[in-house]
């Protein structure tokens, strides 16, 4: 897809590009109703989410490639995190410790065997999330469909949830934001983290930005789906391959599972 776009940009002049843009938009408008017929819910959602579904991810670390960061880039683009720039007078190095990160790549080595493992880390969407327990205002909450997220209208920026998260999944917005995306409001002084592309969920889309990007690279290391639906792809795979939760000892029953860790 990206290649095609690049070529299009190089070869076709501006006028034609405009035409293609409009044409594609129109095609989408025509195609869209047909696409929605195949998705679970007809967009956009008008009924409250319920606990009949529980969204989750399965990461097959064997397929996660060293040096690839497609999921991270896709997440940044999807949620407008790529718009973050270091504030004036701030060093890059310090900004790296302060900018928001929703998903990150981690490379591990087993101390005993030396085996290398690559995996993406993000909010693990626990069934019993410590961040929700500690939040004084109830801004950190778990949606009925299992998504753990922050209600930015209630968040006072105390950062206790960041202290309590065993996965270091949350980020505090240290600087003024600008150019936010309509679907992902975010602003200075609140805490945020991966919300399993909640806007996509509410418009009945099939998957998340990271999953799409991983598949587009041909790796298919991340599977998204409903953990409660016995026929979902994620459940089929969970039955097939051995998997575990990170920090299983805490018994948080995470919605994100890993195999090969």
């Amino acid at each position: 897809m990206t290649d095609k776009t690049d070529r299009a940009e190089n070869e076709i002049d501006a006028g034609r590009r405009d035409f293609i843009g409009v044409a594609a938009g129109m095609t989408a408008a025509v195609v869209a109703p047909g696409v929605f017929l195949h998705s679970v819910a007809a967009a956009p959602r008008s009924e409250p989410v319920n606990s009949d579904v529980r969204w989750g991810l399965l990461v097959d670390t064997a397929k996660c490639v060293d040096g690839c960061s497609a999921c991270v880039e896709a997440c940044n683009e999807e949620n407008g995190l790529n718009l973050q720039t270091p504030p004036k007078g701030e060093s890059e190095r310090k900004w790296d410790t302060q900018k928001a990160v929703w998903i990150r790549k981690v490379k591990l080595q087993d101390n005993q065997t030396g085996r290398i493992t690559n995996l993406p880390m993000m909010c693990q969407h626990c069934e019993h999330p410590p961040c929700v327990d500690v939040c004084p205002t109830g801004a950190s909450f778990k949606r009925a469909d299992g998504i753990v997220m922050v209600d930015r209208h209630l968040c006072i920026g105390c950062r206790y949830c960041m202290m309590a998260c065993p996965y270091k999944a949350r980020s505090f917005i240290h600087d003024e934001t600008s150019g936010q995306l309509t679907s992902v409001p975010r602003g200075k002084g609140c805490v945020e983290s991966c919300n399993l592309c909640v806007h996509r969920r509410d418009y009945g889309e099939e998957s998340t930005a990271c999953v799409d990007a991983c598949a587009a690279e041909g790796h298919h290391a991340i599977v998204f789906g409903d953990l409660k639906d016995p026929n979902s792809a994620i459940n089929q795979q969970l039955k097939e391959i051995p998997s575990r939760q990170i920090r299983e000892d805490l018994q948080l029953n995470t919605g994100v599972r890993y195999s090969g860790v």
């Binding site: 990160v101 990150r104 490379k107 101390n111 005993q112 880390m121 270091k168």
Partner: peptide, 20 residues
């Protein structure tokens, strides 16, 4: 807080995008 959270016991973090 400065001491890293031990998410992967028995493993060493070689690279991370978030100072793990």
């Amino acid at each position: 807080q400065a001491f890293p959270i031990q998410m992967f016991p028995g493993r060493t973090v070689l690279e991370s995008g978030f100072l793990d």
